[in-house]
Structures are given as structure tokens and as C-alpha cells.
Amino acid sequence: MFSMMCAARDLDQDEALQLRRQGVILPLEQFIEQALGRYPGSKLLEAELEEKHDVLVYEIELLTSDHVVRELKFDASDCRLLEDKEDD
């Protein structure tokens, strides 16, 4: 149980910038645009870079125009949408 709770790690701005400069991850703006494109009229609530099971993931939270909070997860290295769900 404990290992599952520690499976994700938030990366700070410095780590994200370094990974971006090294070409390991794509720019956050690209993912925000993609997420907002899926839900026209939505507003960005939060965006963060996490490491889960050795995969770098951008987690983006949106408030849609019909007032639903959605959480989208993208592979930070190639823009693949990994998950799109309604957030509790």
C-alpha cells in the first residue's frame, strides 16, 4: 500500500525546465492548448508535471464551460493523451 502512495512525484519548476532544455519533455503550453482544444470554452485550473512509474506526465485540470472539472494526463515526451476523466 505504501509504495502505491509514493508512486507519483511532483517535479518542481527547475527540474521541468532542465528536462525541457534537454529535449526530454515537450513544452507545457503545447499540452495546455491540446487540453483546451478538447473542451472549448474551458478554463485552466492547474497544470503540473509528475513522474509516475518512470514516466513523465503532465496533469492538466480544467473547468469546462458546463462547470465540470476534468483531469487530463499526457505523456510529457510525446503528447499522447493517457487519461481524460471527470475529477471528483
Rank of each mutant, 00 (worst) to 15 (best):
E46G: 01
P27F: 04
Q34W: 00
D87M: 08
F74P: 06
E29G: 08
L63R: 00
Y58D: 03
Y39N: 05
C6H: 13
C79F: 13
E83L: 14
S77R: 11
R21C: 10
I32G: 04
K85I: 02
E29F: 10
L11I: 12
E29P: 03
S3N: 14
I32L: 13
L44V: 00
V68N: 10
A47M: 01
T64D: 00
E46D: 03
R9F: 04
A16S: 06
Q18I: 08
R70G: 09
D87S: 12
F74S: 04
E83A: 14
A7S: 15
A8C: 12
D75N: 15
M5Y: 13
A47Y: 01
D78W: 02
Q18G: 07
P27V: 02
G41L: 06
K43I: 05
G23R: 09
E29S: 15
D14P: 00
V57K: 02
Y39F: 15
E50H: 00
C79R: 13
E51C: 07
R70V: 14
P27D: 05
D75H: 11
R38H: 08
P40S: 09
D54S: 06
G37P: 01
D14E: 14
E61K: 01
D14S: 12
H67K: 09
L36C: 07
E33G: 05
V69I: 14
D54N: 10
Q22T: 05
A7F: 12
P27C: 06
D87L: 13
G23Y: 09
L19S: 08
R80P: 10
M1A: 11
R21G: 07
D54G: 02
Q34G: 03
S3T: 13
Q22D: 15
Y58K: 03
E61W: 02
A8D: 11
A8P: 10
L28G: 06
K85W: 07
I32R: 01
K85Y: 03
E61C: 02
R70T: 07
D75I: 02
A76P: 06
Q13K: 13
L11C: 12
E71V: 11
A76Y: 04
E83P: 07
R9W: 08
Q13G: 08
F74A: 06
L45Q: 03
G41V: 05
F31A: 02
V55E: 12
G41C: 08
Y39T: 04
Q34R: 09
L49M: 08
L44C: 05
A16L: 02
R9P: 03
L11T: 04
Q13P: 04
V55L: 14
P40R: 03
V68S: 11
D12H: 10
E15G: 05
S77F: 04
K52A: 05
D75K: 05
R21K: 14
S3E: 15
Q13T: 12
E46T: 00
R38P: 00
C79W: 07
K43H: 08
I60P: 00
Q30T: 07
H53V: 09
E48D: 11
E86T: 14
D87T: 04
F31Y: 15
V68W: 10
L17Q: 10
M5F: 13
Q13S: 14
E29H: 11
F31S: 01
E51N: 09
F2L: 15
E86F: 10
K52L: 06
Y58P: 09
L11K: 04
A16F: 01
D75W: 00
G41A: 12
K85L: 13
A35I: 05
C6G: 13
E83Y: 09
I25L: 09
